[in-house]
């Protein structure tokens, strides 16, 4: 039986008729065409489907869509908020932290949640925060470097008038 529910996704409200058994990832990818959120392991090991719900990284492939209605959902499509890339996205591109790109949206959103909470993390704190996001291409070194570089840039931007 369909339920009509309101979702706040990337700052926009969507009224959708969905079934209780539908997962958040289905709603994002199939109903709204937000295919930046990736489907991979399906069992909570890889982090590719990570989105932020009220600022907290959660797995869209294991979340019932109805459970997050009314909550603030951020996907990779909503990060930049304009034509300019978000500093995290810019740093991932500039420092070669992307290869195949499949893990990138989850990596960047998890990193954003970390920097919101801790604007000046150490490399060890970055690695710990990203422990639930698997990358099979880069070897992680450049990803950690990119997060640290973005953090520095974002701190600078906050200080500057």
């Amino acid at each position: 039986m369909k339920v009509f529910a309101g979702f706040d996704i990337n700052g926009q409200t969507h009224e959708l008729g969905i079934e209780p058994h539908q997962l958040l990832i289905e709603v994002l990818r199939d109903h709204l065409g937000l295919t930046g959120t990736k489907h991979s392991c399906g069992v909570g090991n890889c982090g590719a489907c990570t989105v932020l719900v009220d600022g907290v990284p959660v797995l869209a492939c294991m979340t019932l869509a109805l459970a997050v209605r009314g909550k603030r959902i951020l996907t990779i499509e909503g990060l930049a908020g304009g034509p300019e890339l978000h500093p995290l996205q810019r740093a991932f591109v500039d420092l070669g932290a992307i290869q195949c790109g499949y893990c990138t949206p989850g990596m960047i959103l998890t990193a954003k949640a970390l920097l919101d909470r801790n604007p000046a993390p150490t490399a060890a704190e970055v690695r710990e925060a990203l422990a639930g996001n698997i990358c099979r291409c880069t070897g992680y070194v450049k990803i950690v470097e990119a997060v640290l570089a973005a953090a520095e840039k974002m701190r600078g931007r906050e200080v500057a008038p």
Partner: peptide, 9 residues
């Protein structure tokens, strides 16, 4: 327990 995301959920 699990990964950071699993601990959040």
């Amino acid at each position: 327990v699990g990964t950071p995301q699993v601990r959040n959920m």
